[in-house]
Design a protein around this nucleic acid. Structure first.
Lengths: 205, 205
DNA sequence: CAAGATATCTAGACACCGTCAAGATTAAGG
DNA sequence: CCTTAATCTTGACGGTGTCTAGATATCTTG
């Protein structure tokens, strides 16, 4: 084996690792097929043989992300001392630790939803989501689905707003020193409490 | 005035209109400076004189979107017969009618958040958000902010999941013929009700 | 074991993209 | 009227995805 053998041996994994490095370091806009090839030290056209096109590479990366995401959620909800909302906290924590990856995972216009690896990883996470609620997995009612969707939307919406930097004005409105974490916990607490007293007529999001 | 005068007269507006046409027709990935120039019938470098770069064009488009979004929300919440959650319904309705534009509005990596027009339009919408809740505009408590954030996150999360096509598995789980609209209404209903009975130990989103 | 088949990777080309510089054309103002 | 500024065009450069052809290594199989 010389310095750079013609055949890499594990180029597929190396390219995925290189892609994630670029994603973390330079963002999604800088993650190109050629950049991944450079990072891995191969020719510019090499990635096409393993992923087809750029969408393929991004989709495999997202699929890998969903697998790790699912493992993280499972660990949080299966823990013996798991508190209420610990799954939600794990949801946000993963997104904060891998912001660019998480955003990619929810960017359908850059992904190929028909890829088996992606479909499988995504459905596994969705399954955990459905199971963790008290809604039965078979023939749930619309009411039960609405409740489950409410939990998912609440957490996902917070995550997206946080990653996109949209909570700045809210923080500025809050008492000095308030963190996004404190706001998140306050949000969870308010979701557990019923609105007491007269409802405001125009109550929106 | 001949067929194509050297000076367009209102190229800035024409380019914005062309950009939105492309956004609706071909999606964000196809919205390039050169494509907008082609659609408007001018040379490929013309847009740079009005928007600086591609980020500038996208940001102005997003700013325009936030202005219309704000008007739509205001109309919904100010209506004399406005029901609870009508602001939320308008939020989702606007996103469904302009999916690509809405997604662009929440894609910070493609926008320049420091552009005055964008900042202003965005803050105007945020102001409506903050006012519509019972939280006072001055010195709200963390609890009040948490409640307001909960409403925003709930609606925004649902919208993002819907636009990204992530509700498919949920629909498949639901009784046949269930629409996303029905799920949305069920979600709103569940947000109004307190969870009765014993809480599940692992309750996540 | 050897040789043909196959998988893997390289090199080159093409059209498209954003962006910059230089020049042509028109409008505005003193 | 003539200067100045704004507007738009033309041409160029490097970067990108993707296609083709060819080089190299591994695998299979007779």
């Amino acid at each position: 084996m010389k310095t750079t053998p013609y055949h890499h041996g594990a180029l597929r994994e190396a390219l995925l690792a290189a892609a994630e490095t670029i994603l973390k370091r330079d963002g999604l806009n800088a993650l190109t097929l050629r950049a991944a090839a450079r990072e891995a030290g191969v020719s510019h056209a090499a990635p096409a043989h393993h992923f087809g096109d750029l969408t393929g590479l991004l989709t495999e990366l997202a699929a890998d992300g969903f697998q790790r995401f699912g493992a993280r959620l499972k660990a949080a909800t299966d823990a013996p001392d798991a508190r209420r909302w610990d799954g939600a906290r794990a949801y946000v924590a993963f997104a904060v630790e891998h912001p660019a990856l998480f955003q990619l995972m929810y960017r359908s216009d850059r992904l190929d939803g028909s890829r088996p690896s992606f479909k499988e990883a995504r459905m596994q996470v969705f399954g955990m989501l459905a199971e963790s609620r008290d809604a039965p997995a078979t023939q749930p009612s619309v009411e039960q689905l609405g409740k489950m969707l409410g939990g998912w939307s609440l957490i996902h919406g917070f995550t997206m707003l946080l990653l996109d930097g949209r909570l700045g004005p809210l923080i500025k409105l809050a008492p000095e020193g308030t963190t996004t974490d404190a706001l998140f916990e306050a949000m969870l607490a308010s979701a557990d409490k019923q609105a007491i007293g007269p409802r405001p007529t125009a109550d929106m999001a």
